[in-house]
Nucleic acid binder design. Structure first.
Lengths: 226, 226
DNA sequence: ACAATGCTTCGCTTATGGTCGAACTATGAA
DNA sequence: TTCATAGTTCGACCATAAGCGAAGCATTGT
């Protein structure tokens, strides 16, 4: 009776306009940072933080710390289906406002996340590496296998300077546009640097877009096949 | 955007404890009066009236005037399924409180509604009459057919005094415990009086319960078969 | 070490909305 | 008609919570 939300508490959580906007934004399946959600809801970061705390306490959201970001996503499929149900009803009766879709296509495809590759290609690379057991992901931990070490060495990554850094060697990072993981950590940085060096891609200054050349993308896909 | 409820407005409607209690009570499928809903929610009638107005504006409730009562019920199946979804979620996470079931079984079976028969037996009688085309129900209007007039005459109803009354001859009345219609109006009164006269049933003083005898109920079912 | 960024916590103001008392309307019963 | 019951409307009160400025904490990058 005090543990979890009853129907009134649940309704009240969803009933605030700011929270409803946040939840609607998260319905895309993407995980978003507190700042992004604040912008979506049109409120300041402090207010958003309070709202996110309440949603989390209510069991609607799941939070994942990621460096200095906090990615929020819907807690589970149940939450999504409840919202789905309510949105469907609201749409049927009146007209609910249409949400703006995903923004910049190029940004979704490939971009820098800190200093490693993110976006669809980043996810593709991550999946390709885990599928071949070069990386093993369990829970939030990511471990590099011997065969993986060999693969990266063959790819031209020098592990020596990486060992000195206090940054973890490899680390999964939740993707902004795809809700999937991609490879962060010093290996992730080294790989992106390698792509630049090989001329596969170039960074668009000012934006976070990573522009792959046609040949570069082909070579990339050959090295990291789906 | 202002016409119907968006998801935030919908959540806010369900999010108030008083309204949530009312809606939960209505989930049984029964139609309840404003007073009953007020009691369910533990608020005064004025406050309940305000809440019911909002729920109606939001498209969650349907109202049916019935003499000096107003019966409220969930607007449609969509509303019920949204609530179902939310209650399921709330129950899964925490424990939502268990609702008290229907109260007095005898009251549900047969009782007086003003001066005619209500409850399961009242509904049975109504269904039996409409199934045989003695009464025809369309929209909210109820009309007596010629064969119906003959049936009631054979049953011993004298129509002469009834004509003088300004009360409608027959009229459907929404049932309190079954959300179904039963027969009101002066014919309904006359029938109940007839049951008393025949010794089929007796009224329990102080309560609204109509106590049928074993023989009485058998005879009743013979006259008004399902 | 230092600055910059992302987010949280604290304290305060403000306003939305739930609540009830009182008065009014509508329907039915005597 | 008169009275009683069911419900609505109005007006005022008040509690909850949304909002933001400012300060503090945590993490990353140089």
């Amino acid at each position: 009776m005090k543990d979890g939300p009853n129907i009134a508490m649940l309704g009240a959580l969803i009933g605030d306009p700011a929270r409803a906007n946040m939840l609607t934004a998260l319905m895309s399946g993407k995980a978003l940072t507190a700042s992004e959600l604040a912008a979506e809801a049109g409120i300041t970061l402090q207010t958003a933080s309070a709202h996110l705390g309440k949603l989390q306490t209510g069991g609607l959201l799941h939070q994942r710390k990621q460096g200095r970001h906090r990615y929020f996503s819907l807690a589970d499929e149940d939450v999504a289906s409840v919202l789905e149900s309510m949105m469907g009803f609201a749409e049927k009766k009146g007209h609910s406002r249409i949400r703006t879709g995903p923004k910049e296509p190029a940004l979704r495809k490939a971009r820098v996340c800190y200093n490693h590759l993110a976006g669809e290609l980043g996810v593709q690379m991550f999946d390709s590496l885990t599928a071949r057991d070069f990386l093993i992901e369990q829970d939030a931990a990511l471990t590099l296998t011997d065969s993986g070490r060999q693969f990266f060495t063959d790819f031209g990554i020098d592990f020596e300077p990486l060992k000195k850094s206090r940054r973890p060697l490899c680390k999964s990072c939740l993707d902004w546009s795809a809700r999937r993981s991609h490879l962060a950590g010093s290996i992730g940085s080294a790989l992106l640097a390698s792509f630049y060096k090989r001329g596969w891609a170039a960074r668009i200054e000012g934006a976070r877009i990573v522009a792959f050349t046609k040949k570069g993308e082909a070579a990339f896909t050959q090295s990291f096949p789906v």
